[in-house]
């Protein structure tokens, strides 16, 4: 019994079928409770009023946008090293989800920035690097779309993901160098003295858990779809050969 057993599509489908409903329900519960708690049962900020509450969507989406890329990097490496198809398909499944989370983070940030900073967009390092991250996701998805042969596509996108990770990291620190930002620093760190107050922290934690679970749900669902599509393709090919 090892972890790699689930690289077998059959085993993966069995396990994910059993796990999926629980993860989905947990994601829904966390998000509903966390968002309702955050939106309606936390005090307004003394300076920012109720606009601060967009943070319950913004922060988890932004965290997951980055984590989704990290997950793609890990699954890409697993594909290149151990050639497990489920791994490559999971990376493919995660990319659009990560892109949407990136866009959510950008849009919620713009909605908050308009009343608070007086602008929808500012060439701040964090904002800029998120825009660049969105471009990386776009390129990755476009490369998957462009190549017909699934194994070639998986190989090439994995290589792109690895190289892209290095350059995304470089860009993150390059833009830091290029412009000093408006965006506040981290306030949810585990190792800092000064963090956000507990009344905001607990609902935020619940929202983050909700987004993580939502990501897992969507990726499992999309990976299952990809595996089924792959099987369907194989069946059709067999049919055609007669």
């Amino acid at each position: 019994m090892s972890f790699w057993e689930y690289a077998n599509p059959q085993k993966f489908m069995q396990l994910s079928r059993r796990v999926l409903p629980f993860v989905a329900v947990a994601a829904g519960l966390c998000l509903v409770i966390g968002l309702v708690w955050g939106f309606f049962f936390t005090p307004d900020d003394y300076k920012q009023g109720s606009t601060v509450k967009i943070f319950y969507l913004h922060v988890p989406a932004a965290m997951m946008a980055i984590n989704a890329w990290v997950m793609m990097l890990v699954t890409s490496l697993v594909w290149l090293i151990r050639r497990h198809h489920v791994s490559a398909l999971a990376a493919k499944a995660a990319a659009p989800v990560g892109l949407i989370f990136t866009v959510i983070a950008l849009i919620t940030g713009a909605l908050w920035g308009q009343p608070m900073w007086g602008t929808w967009w500012e060439w701040d390092p964090r904002l800029t690097s998120f825009l660049i991250l969105a471009l990386f996701y776009l390129g990755y998805i476009a490369l998957w779309q462009a190549i017909d042969d699934p194994d070639t596509a998986a190989d090439l996108t994995s290589v792109l993901c690895i190289v892209g990770s290095v350059f995304a990291l470089l860009s993150r620190y390059a833009v830091n160098f290029w412009n000093q930002g408006l965006h506040q620093g981290a306030s949810l760190s585990l190792d800092k003295e000064e963090n956000v107050a507990d009344v905001f922290w607990y609902p935020a934690l619940l929202c983050i858990a909700g987004f993580v679970l939502l990501f897992v749900t969507l990726v499992l669902l999309r990976t299952r779809t990809e595996i089924r599509a792959r099987r369907l393709g194989a069946l059709l090919a067999r049919e055609r050969r007669g």
């Binding site: 792109l160 470089l170 833009v175």
Partner: peptide, 30 residues
Amino acid sequence: ALTVGLKRGGLLLSLLVLPLYVPTLIFGAE
């Protein structure tokens, strides 16, 4: 090299390469 096998790789090539150019551009222009 990534797009060499594709029929119309030109546009995809720019989509892939331009984000990778970001750090070079920033430091060069700086």
